[in-house]
Simulated assay, not measured.
Amino acid sequence: MAVIKSKTQPKKLWGRFEIDASIPAADNIFDIPLFEKYLHDRIKINGIAGKLGTDVIITRNKNTLKITSKVDMSKRYMKYLTKKFLKKNQLRDWIRVVADNKGSYQLKYYNINQEVTA
């Protein structure tokens, strides 16, 4: 006996990711629109970069980017692209990418002012 699926079921979304850059953007170090364009140009779908179509939707809300994907995409891939952007803009020495919960990353400064006690 075959199981018949309803045609009204919504398609499964493979990935919902959030990248919060509010800390460096508040200091005018990190450019959110430039980062959004970078992701539009660099995210690969079926081996082709820049042709997102309706498969990947990137929305910006002040200092946060939300990426919604209908194709299989890993959270690690978003971290990889974020780190490449930081390296390209020479921010990698000051900003790090930290996972704050299951579906999101946050950009934070490295803690440089650590006192070392002997």
Rank of each mutant, 00 (worst) to 15 (best):
S74D: 09
I23Q: 05
M73V: 14
L39W: 04
P10L: 10
G50R: 05
Q9D: 11
G103Q: 13
I67P: 13
R42N: 10
A25F: 10
S22C: 01
I23M: 01
M1Y: 06
R76C: 03
I45R: 06
R60L: 06
D93Q: 15
N61P: 08
S69G: 13
K11D: 05
K88W: 06
R16K: 13
S74Q: 14
K44H: 04
K83P: 00
I4V: 11
K7E: 08
K5R: 12
T68K: 13
K11E: 07
K75Q: 05
D41F: 06
Y80P: 01
N111K: 10
M73A: 13
E36K: 14
S6R: 11
V98I: 09
S74C: 06
P10R: 10
I23S: 03
E18V: 13
I43F: 11
K87D: 10
D100P: 09
Y110E: 01
L13Y: 07
V98F: 05
T117L: 11
I4T: 03
P33Q: 02
V116G: 00
A21T: 11
N28P: 04
Y38W: 11
E18H: 07
A25G: 10
V71W: 02
Q106C: 08
I45Q: 02
Y105A: 06
G53H: 06
N63M: 09
I57K: 03
Q106G: 04
L81D: 06
Q114S: 10
D55N: 12
M78H: 02
L13C: 02
S104A: 12
S69C: 12
M78K: 07
I4W: 01
I58D: 00
D41A: 14
H40T: 07
D31P: 07
R92T: 08
K102V: 09
D27F: 02
R60E: 08
L65T: 15
S6W: 08
Y109N: 00
N101H: 14
L39F: 09
K102D: 14
N28I: 04
P10C: 04
K7F: 07
D72P: 09
R16V: 15
G103S: 15
K88C: 03
L34Y: 02
V116L: 05
L34D: 08
L81P: 10
I29S: 01
V98N: 03
I95F: 01
Q106V: 13
T82D: 00
K37F: 06
T82Q: 00
T8C: 07
T64F: 03
Y38L: 06
V3M: 13
L86N: 02
I29Q: 04
R60M: 07
D20R: 13
P33A: 02
K11M: 00
I95M: 01
D31Y: 15
E36C: 08
I45T: 05
R42V: 06
K37D: 07
K44R: 13
